[in-house]
Amino acid sequence: MSVLTFAELLYDSEIGTALRESLFAFPIVEGTHLIGLALSVGLLFFIDLRLVGILFRNVPIPQILQQLRPWLLGGFAVTMTTGALLFAAAAPKLIVLPVFLWKLAFIVLAGLNAAWFEFKWGRDVQHWSHASAVPAGVKFGAWSSLILWSLVVITGRLIPYLSYN
């Protein structure tokens, strides 16, 4: 099955149709997508800003990493679920839209960056977090996260403006 066939199947599915035709369902899902974004990307930005040394320099790194993790992962679950629903409602149009594909690519890169950070640094945070200077690799990961997620938000917001031409 091609991606386009799959997108059309999603579009014609009960959930895709219900979302499109209901007056309230679509904006409610969009509103929830935005609030999920504040929890996921919003809290992640605080961690990144701590790692690069812009905010909360007196907060120990393991503390902020561990205590915000469940909330931002919950936020990502909300953002991804509502995002999948919004995609289902307009799948055939989105799957051929360059700005949507850019958004997907930035999400994949941001996810790979997060996985790399967890694997390389997250697991032995106790070893490097007491050093006076944060390792360069950690800062690189944090800056990449800040930039990639910002690009995800920007390309996401551009979708309605670049799809009706």
């Binding site: 935005l34 609030i35 974004l37 504040a38 929890l39 990307v41 919003g42 809290l43 930005f45 605080f46 909360f56 007196n58 907060v59 503390q63 902020i64 205590q67 915000l68 909330w71 910002s150 938000v153």
Partner: peptide
């Protein structure tokens, strides 16, 4: 971007007010 800059700190401080995050700070 403005909305995220307002909502994210408010989520963070609310977690602290509930004792659910950064509670040692």
């Amino acid at each position: 971007i403005g909305i995220i800059l307002v909502l994210a700190p408010i989520v963070l401080i609310s977690l602290r007010l509930f004792g659910a995050g950064l509670y040692q700070q």
